[in-house]
Design a protein around this nucleic acid. Structure first.
Length: 893
RNA sequence: GCGGGCAUGGCGGAAUCGGUAGACGCAAGGGACUUAAAAUCCCUCGGCCUUAGUGCUGUCCGGGUUCGAGUCCCGGUGCCCGCACCA
C-alpha cells in the first residue's frame, strides 16, 4: 500500500478529502470537492465524445503543440507533470480559440536502460519497455491531458522503425549518409560508440565512464554539409530562446581564416613539399616563431616510424585524457621534429616545426603556426621551449608601439606594426589584407571552418533500430531493398555477456547479398537513439501511412507551432531534428526546413534534500515541524531530526523525489497541474513544496465551495454584463482579467495568469456569498454569473476536471472543454475614472481620481487645487508639471 | 579562458514603453467561529523613527542620464548555465 505524502499540515486535508466534509454549524453546507470521483468521470466523458481526436481534414486553422516525448523509464516524474501540464494548457487554450489542435504523445523507447534491465533482471528489453509504457500511459492519462491517443506510437514499434529504415535508405541514395573508418569515442562501460555531443567532460553522457579513442568503421549522417545552413537559419527562429540559439551557434562554431601553405626547407625524409595550416589570425604572421602539428598528424606519424622517442611522445599524447581537469592541468609539450619551413613574408627566415600536444588533429588541418605574442597557448609553449616572442600588434591607445607581452598574450583588437603590407591596419582589415596578399603569392586561400562534426550513428547495441545494410565481400555495402524492409530485431537474444547480442546471434546476420545473391552478412550495428527522436514529430502528422510521412499532412501541420521541453536538449536533439527535417526535404518526405517554429524550454522541478545518519531520506518519510521561526525535519519512522539540505533537482540518488501518483491520489490531477503552473515562471526551476501544493488545493476547494453555495442562484439567472454599481465593477474585473489572462497564455506566462485568477476570485468572493444568501440583486447576480463563466473557461486549460464539474454545477450544459474561449468587451476593459498618483519632485505625495475624458489642463488644474499640493507649493508656482496620460502626474518645484 | 543569463520582503515571485515597488501565492503573527481541533472567515505583515507623519529609507555595490530609474548607460561584486587546448 502506498503511503500518502505525509506532512503534518497535509494529513487533515487528506483525511478531509477521504471523508465528506460538513460545516459544523450548517448541515446543509457543501461537500468537499472530491477529485477521486470527478476526475475519472470527466476523463471518460471526454473519451466518449472523442473530443481530442484530431481530424487532419478539418477546415479550421491548424495548431501543433508538442511536448518532448518521454523515455519509458517506468514511472513519470514531476518534471513530466510540469512539462505536460504546460503543453496541455496551450493545447486546450488553442482549441478553445478555435484551432484544430494536434497534441499527440509517444515513447522514445529504444535505448540502453532496457538492455541494462535485461542484464540485471533477466527480462527481455521489449517486455520491459512495453510494460513501462503501459504503466506510464496510465499515469499520463490520470493527468487528464487533451491528447489524441489514437496517434500514439513507440519508436521501438516495428511500424515506426520500419519507416526509419526507409528514411535511412533514402538518405543513403541521396548521399546524406557516409561510412567512415575513423577515431570514435568508445564508452568502455556501455561498450558502444558515442557522438561528440554525447561526450561530456571526456565521459559518456549516460554511463559517466572515461571515454577512449578507437578506430572503427562508422555510419555517419553528413550533418556537417549543413553547417552553414543550420547556422544561418537560426537567425529566423525568433520564437526560440536566444540562449538555445546561442548554444547552437557556438556548437556549430564557424570561424573564418586562411589555409596557408608553408614550403619546407629542412624536410628530412618526408615527402610533403609544404606544411598546410589553418589560422584565423593570418595578420599576425610577422610574429610567427614556430610551427606546431598534432601528434596525430600524418607527418608526425610518418616520422615516428623511425624515431622511437617521437613514438613515445605520440603515445603519451594519446594517453592524455580529454576531460576538463586533464586539459587544464596538462602542460604544453612539444617535440622538435627537426624540420623547418620558410616564412612567407620574411626573406630567409625559417620556422622550426614541432609536434605538440595541444594541437587537435580534427580541427582545421591539424597544424598551426605559432605566434606567441598573440595567442596564449603559443605563448605558454614558446616560454617553455625558449622560442622568440615578437609582438606585432599595438594597442589602440598607443598605435605605434608593439603591445608589451610578458605572460599574457595580447589578443584584443589593435593596430598591426612591423608587419609589411599589414602595418597600420586594424585587426579585421589586416586579416583581410593578409589573406589577399598570401593568395596573390599562391600560398593561401580564405577558408571557413566549423567545429560541427558529422554525426556518427552506429551503436554496438541490441535495443535500437537496425541499420538496414548488408555487407557483401564482392559488392561492398548494399542497402536492404525497400521491399525487404523492415529488418526486424530478432527476439531470441541473450544478455548474459557484454557486447552486442546481434553480433553473436547464430543466424540473424546471415543473409544473401541483394545484388549478387552470394552469402553476405547484415550490419549488426543499430542506430543512435537520437535518430529515433529526430523525426517523430513528423510521423505524428500521419502515423497510419505506409511511407514515413504523408507529405501533405506533414507540410500542413509542420513546423510544430509550440514545442516544449527541457533545456538539456538544446544542442543534441534540436540540432539533429533540424538536420533531419532538411534531409527529409531532400528525400521528398516533406517540404519544410525547420521542424519547430516555437520552442520553449521549461525549468526543472527541484526539492529540498533531507539527510539523516544513514544517508538521504525521501520527503514521504519526513515530517516538517515549525517553531520559533525555525523549520526542522523529522524522520517519521525513527522520530529523529534529520538535516535539511540544499534544494536539488529531483533525483533518485538524492532521494528527494515526489511521486506524481501519490500527489494525484491525494489531491487530484488538477491540484498537481495548477501548482506546477503557479508561482515560478515556467522557464525557471520550480521548488516543490508541500505547503505550495496545499495552497493550490485550498484554491480548488474554495472555488468549489463558492460556486456550490451559490449554485441555486446561478441556475436561476442568465449571465450578462453589469452596467453600473457593484455589477459594473464585477463585469469590469471579469473582462479585464479575461483580456490579461489571454495575453499571459499567449506568452506562456502561466504564473501570471494564475495570479490573475486568484485576484478575480478574491474580487467576486463576496458577491458570490451574497448570492448564496439570497441577498444579491438580479443585475449583480447576472454579472457575477458571467464572471464565474469566464473564470471557469480561464482555468479550464489548467484544471480541466474541476472546470467541467463547476460548469455543470452552475447549471450550464455541454462541456467546457468543448466551449469557445469567451470574448471580452472592449468597452469594459477601459476605465471611466482614472486613478493617478501625484509626485512632487519625483516622490509620491498624493493621489487623485479623474475622469478618463479629462484633458491635461483639467488634470493639472484639479491637482493644483488640492490642499496637499498647495502645502508643498507654499504659494509658489510649480516650475513644471508633467502629466503622463493614464500613468502619473509629477510636479517639479 | 570564451559565450550567455540572473540579482526585488522570511520564501516563490509581480511591476507592459522609464511612471504608485512588493500584485498573487507561501510562511508567520493576531482575532472570530468551535466543548476542542480541523476547515472557513476577518485583520497585520520590507526596514527605521523621543516628532507615527502630508515622515525617512528601501529593488546586490559605486557612479551617471532623467521631472522621474527595479527598468537605461558606465564601472564593480556575487551566483547560475553552456562550451572549452577549436588556432
Amino acid at each position: 500500500m502506498k503511503q500518502h505524502y505525509s506532512f503534518s499540515v497535509s494529513k487533515n486535508t487528506l483525511k478531509a478529502i477521504k471523508e465528506p466534509y460538513f460545516k459544523a454549524s450548517d448541515p446543509m453546507a457543501t461537500e468537499r470537492y472530491n477529485p477521486r470521483v470527478t476526475e475519472p468521470k470527466w476523463r471518460n466523458a471526454w473519451d466518449e465524445a472523442k473530443l481530442f481526436e484530431t481530424d487532419n481534414a478539418s477546415p479550421k486553422p491548424k495548431y501543433y503543440v508538442l511536448e518532448m516525448f518521454p523515455y519509458p523509464s517506468g514511472r513519470i516524474h514531476m518534471g513530466h507533470v510540469r512539462n505536460y501540464a504546460m503543453g496541455d494548457v496551450v493545447a486546450r487554450y488553442k482549441r478553445a480559440m478555435g484551432y484544430n489542435v494536434l497534441h499527440p504523445m509517444g515513447w522514445d523507447a529504444f535505448g540502453m536502460p532496457a538492455e541494462n534491465a535485461a542484464m540485471q533482471n533477466k527480462v527481455h528489453p521489449k517486455e520491459w519497455t512495453y510494460q513501462n509504457i503501459a504503466a506510464m500511459r496510465s499515469q499520463l492519462k490520470s493527468m487528464g491531458l487533451s491528447i489524441d491517443w489514437t496517434r500514439e506510437f513507440a519508436t521501438c514499434d516495428v511500424d515506426y522503425y520500419h519507416r526509419q529504415q526507409m528514411l535511412f535508405v533514402d538518405f543513403l541514395h541521396k548521399g546524406l549518409v557516409g561510412r567512415r573508418v575513423s577515431k570514435v569515442n568508445w564508452d568502455p562501460e556501455d561498450q558502444t560508440v558515442l557522438a561528440n555531443e554525447q561526450v561530456i567532460d571526456g565521459r559518456g553522457w549516460r554511463s559517466g565512464a572515461l571515454v577512449e579513442q578507437r578506430e572503427l568503421a562508422q555510419w555517419v549522417f553528413k550533418i556537417s554539409d549543413y553547417s552553414e545552413e543550420l547556422l544561418d537559419a537560426l537567425d529566423n527562429l525568433d520564437n526560440w530562446p536566444d540562449k538555445v540559439r546561442t548554444m547552437q551557434r557556438n556548437w556549430i562554431g564557424k570561424s573564418r581564416g586562411a589555409r596557408i601553405n608553408f614550403p619546407f626547407v629542412k624536410r628530412s625524409s618526408i615527402k610533403d613539399d609544404e606544411l598546410i595550416c589553418f589560422s584565423t589570425r593570418p595578420d599576425t604572421l610577422y610574429g610567427a616563431s614556430f610551427m606546431a602539428i598534432s601528434a596525430e598528424h600524418p607527418i608526425t606519424l610518418e616520422l615516428a616510424k623511425s624515431d622511437p622517442k617521437l613514438l613515445a611522445f605520440v603515445e603519451q599524447c594519446r594517453r592524455l585524457g580529454t576531460s576538463t581537469a586533464d586539459i587544464e592541468t596538462a602542460e604544453k609539450q612539444g617535440y622538435d621534429l627537426g624540420l623547418t619551413v620558410k616564412h612567407p613574408f620574411i626573406e630567409g627566415k625559417e620556422l622550426p616545426v614541432y609536434a605538440a600536444n595541444f594541437v587537435l588533429m580534427d580541427y582545421g588541418t591539424g597544424a598551426i603556426f605559432g605566434c606567441p605574442a598573440h595567442d596564449q597557448r603559443d605563448l605558454d609553449f614558446a616560454r617553455k621551449y625558449g622560442l622568440e616572442v615578437t609582438s606585432v600588434v599595438a594597442t589602440l591607445s598607443d598605435p605605434n608601439t608593439p603591445a608589451p607581452v610578458d605572460d599574457i598574450a595580447f589578443v584584443d583588437d589593435g593596430v598591426l606594426v612591423n608587419s609589411g603590407p599589414m602595418s597600420g591596419l586594424r585587426k579585421d582589415e589586416a586579416i583581410n589584407k593578409a589573406i589577399d596578399v598570401l593568395a596573390e603569392m599562391g600560398l593561401a586561400k580564405e577558408e571557413i571552418n566549423y567545429r560541427l562534426r558529422d554525426w556518427g550513428i552506429s551503436r554496438q547495441r541490441y535495443w535500437g533500430c537496425p541499420i538496414p545494410v548488408i555487407h557483401c565481400d564482392d559488392c561492398g555495402t548494399v542497402p536492404v531493398p525497400k521491399s525487404d524492409l523492415p529488418v526486424k530485431l530478432p527476439e531470441d537474444v541473450t544478455f548474459d555477456i557484454p557486447g552486442n547480442p546481434l553480433d553473436r546471434h547464430p543466424t540473424w546476420r546471415h543473409v544473401n547479398c541483394p545484388k549478387c545473391n552470394k552469402p553476405a552478412s547484415r550490419e549488426t550495428d543499430t542506430m543512435d537513439t537520437f535518430v529515433d527522436s529526430s523525426w517523430y514529430f513528423a510521423r505524428f502528422t500521419a502515423p497510419w501511412e505506409h511511407e514515413p510521412t504523408d507529405p501533405k499532412a506533414a507540410n500542413d501541420w509542420l513546423p510544430v507551432d509550440q514545442y516544449i521541453g527541457g533545456i538539456e536538449h538544446a544542442i543534441l536533439h534540436l540540432l539533429y531534428s533540424r538536420f533531419f527535417t532538411r534531409a527529409m526535404k531532400v528525400t521528398g518526405h516533406l517540404n519544410i526546413e525547420e521542424p519547430f517554429k516555437g520552442l520553449f524550454t521549461q525549468g526543472m522541478v527541484v526539492h529540498e534534500t533531507y539527510k539523516g545518519e544513514a544517508g538521504f531520506v525521501t520527503p514521504a518519510d519526513i515530517c516538517i515541524e515549525e517553531s520559533d521561526g525555525k523549520r526542522r525535519a523529522i524522520d517519521i519512522a525513527s522520530g529523529k531530526e534529520v538535516k535539511i539540505g540544499s534544494i536539488e533537482k529531483m533525483s533518485k540518488s538524492k532521494k528527494n523525489v515526489v511521486d506524481p501518483d501519490d500527489i494525484i491520489a491525494s489531491y487530484g490531477a488538477d491540484t498537481a497541474r495548477f501548482f506546477m503552473l503557479s508561482d515560478s515562471p515556467p522557464e525557471r526551476d520550480v521548488i516543490w513544496t508541500e505547503s505550495g501544493v496545499e495552497g493550490s488545493h485550498r484554491f480548488v476547494q474554495r472555488i468549489w465551495r463558492l460556486l456550490n453555495d451559490a449554485s441555486e442562484g446561478f441556475k436561476a439567472t442568465k449571465s450578462g454584463k453589469g452596467i453600473d454599481g457593484k455589477a459594473g465593477e464585477i463585469s469590469k474585473s471579469a473582462h479585464k482579467t479575461l483580456k490579461a489572462v489571454g495575453e499571459d497564455l499567449d506568452k506562456l506566462a502561466f504564473n501570471k495568469a494564475v495570479a490573475r485568477l486568484y485576484e478575480l476570485v478574491n474580487m467576486i468572493a463576496n458577491p458570490i456569498s451574497e448570492i448564496a444568501k439570497g441577498n444579491a440583486d438580479p443585475q449583480t447576480t447576472s454579472a457575477t454569473k458571467e464572471a464565474v463563466e469566464f473564470l471557469i473557461a480561464m482555468f479550464a486549460p489548467m484544471m480541466p476536471h474541476l472546470a467541467e464539474e463547476c460548469w455543470q454545477v452552475i447549471g450550464n450544459s455541454g462541456m467546457i472543454a468543448d466551449h469557445p474561449w469567451p470574448k471580452f468587451d472592449d468597452g469594459l476593459v477601459v476605465d471611466d475614472d482614472i486613478f493617478l498618483p501625484i509626485q512632487v519632485n519625483g516622490k509620491k505625495r498624493a493621489e487623485v481620481t479623474v475622469s478618463a475624458s479629462a484633458n491635461q489642463d483639467e488634470i493639472i488644474a484639479a491637482v493644483l487645487e488640492m490642499d496637499v499640493i498647495k502645502g508643498y507649493l507654499d504659494g509658489n508656482k510649480p516650475r513644471k508639471v508633467i502629466v503622463v496620460p493614464k500613468r502619473i502626474v509629477n510636479i517639479v518645484l
